[in-house]
Every structure is written in C-alpha cells, then in structure tokens.
C-alpha cells in the first residue's frame, strides 16, 4: 500500500484554480519527485498534504487513513515532516536552538529527561553533523546562507523522526558539491525506510535520486514515471519549454563558462 495518497485534490483561491484534480501516490521507502513549471501548484500540494491549506475538494490519505481534516500538528505527530520553499527557519534562534526546539516539540515531556542526561544535546549535534552544518551551530538562523538554512530545515524536520518527508526546493542555495552530497543524504534517508517527496528544480538532482517522478502542470498531474521516461516525455518538454522538437544537443559549456555578454550583444 502506498504511504501517501493524494486523491483528486482541488484548491481554488477565489477564481483561480491552483490545484486541479491532482491525484498521485507515494510508495514507502522511495525518493519521489514532484516537478513542474512555475506556478504549477507544487507548493500548494505540499500545503494541502501538511494541512496548512484546506483543499476545496479531494482527500489526503496517509497509510490508508484519511487525514484531510486533521490539524497541522496532528499530521506532524503522524509522521509528516516538511521543509519550506520560502524559508521558515526560526530566525531569532541559533541554528542549534532551531533543531533543539524541534526535538523538544517532538519529545514533549519525555524531552525533560533527555535534557537532564544530555542525550538531547547529543541528538542535536548528530543531526547537525548529518546534514553537514555543524560549523553554523551558534549562528542565528536569519544570518546563515540560504543553503544552510535549507539544510537546517531538513535537520529540524528530521528531529521529529518523520516517516514522510516533504522537501520543497531543498537544493536551491546549495553549490554543486553540496548538492551532490545532499543527493547522497536523500538516498541514505530512503535507505533507512523514510519516504521522501521532493519538489525540486535542479533536474540533475531529480533525475539522479528520484525513483519516481510526478509532473504537475496547471495543477494537474500530466505525467508520471521513471526519470528516464520523464526526460524524453514530449508532454513534459512542452510544459517546460513550450516546444517538443528535440533540437537539444552539443554545447554543455554554457553553464560552466562565464562569457562576457556585452561583446556578444553589442554589434
């Protein structure tokens, strides 16, 4: 049985339909991608799954249980964790305190004992180390680079030991090396039995780590399949580029070299 099932969800803001009868499933223990052009409704989908946005119609099922009406914090208790595209780190707290707070929230009263024997501190350190931001531990969360803040949100979500982890554009702000390391971490998390659903624009990352990809456009799923299938899917290409013919080829140099553009533009 799939871990998460989004069933015919519709979200309307006034007259605008952000999500239009979207249905998809996420299998346990996988890294699944949710991609689509700007404004396709990906983040709104995440908000519906986590309960921050009530759907106009449709259902969300976790492990076969209908959680459409459950409040945000109860879904978190059921094992849904997430990060945000527009960051929601606790800006006034240090990176360390951010993760510690998440741990405290998750542990509830049990946490009191953990803080006595110091195991909570250890856990925080492990989490920071795991996502690779230990060196920022004592900095305020509103003063660290975006990439670090995103990893911080991941560490914070992991502190609550989620079964299903929703990541909203986790790699933006990371450089190439960090992105590769991040991809490895995702695969590792899936290996532990966690399920990852990721909205991501870095196609290299998506194509390498995701086992399944759902493509959202105009609020509806227009394609799903393996990375190899998605890459050559003409429907997807049209959604992204506005054309279908495969003119692509050659010149990989563009991303690497920094051409002095003024020379080219000036006649």
């Amino acid at each position: 049985m799939s871990l998460l099932r989004v069933d015919d969800v519709v979200v309307q803001f006034g007259g605008v339909t952000a999500v239009n009868h979207a249905s998809f499933e996420v299998e346990p223990g996988t890294v699944t991608g949710l991609i689509g052009p700007n404004g396709a409704g990906k983040t709104t989908c995440f908000n519906v799954i986590t309960g921050l946005q009530a759907p106009t119609s449709g259902r969300v099922l976790l492990d076969g249980h209908d959680i459409t009406k459950a409040p945000v914090h109860r879904r978190a208790r059921r094992g849904i964790g997430r990060t945000f595209q527009r960051l929601e780190a606790f800006g006034s707290l240090t990176v360390w305190d951010n993760v510690r707070t998440a741990l405290d929230i998750h542990d509830g009263f049990r946490g009191l004992f953990k803080s006595v024997d110091g195991s909570a501190d250890q856990e925080v350190e492990q989490l920071l180390e795991r996502v690779g931001i230990s060196e920022y531990a004592d900095e305020r969360a509103d003063s660290v680079p975006t990439g670090v803040a995103r990893l911080l949100e991941l560490a914070r979500a992991l502190a609550c030991d989620p079964r299903l982890l929703l990541l909203d554009e986790p790699s933006s702000g990371l450089d190439e090396v960090e992105t590769v390391a991040f991809g490895r971490l995702l695969v590792e998390l899936a290996g532990e039995g966690r399920t990852v659903l990721m909205v991501e624009h870095d196609m290299d990352l998506v194509m390498t780590v995701c086992e399944v990809i759902h493509v959202l456009d105009f609020g509806s799923i227009i394609a799903q399949g393996s990375p190899a299938q998605i890459r050559v899917d003409p429907v997807v290409q049209r959604a992204y580029l506005g054309f279908t013919d495969q003119t692509a080829g050659g010149a990989h140099a563009a991303t690497a070299s920094d051409i002095d553009d003024t020379k080219v533009l000036a006649p």
Binding site: H73, E153, R156, C160
Partner: peptide, 9 residues
C-alpha cells in the same frame, strides 16, 4: 507554520 508542521499545538 513551521511550529505546526513540527507537531506543536
């Protein structure tokens, strides 16, 4: 929002 999604009521 973040507190909610971490499970805080």
């Amino acid at each position: 929002a973040a507190c909610g999604t971490l499970g805080l009521d």
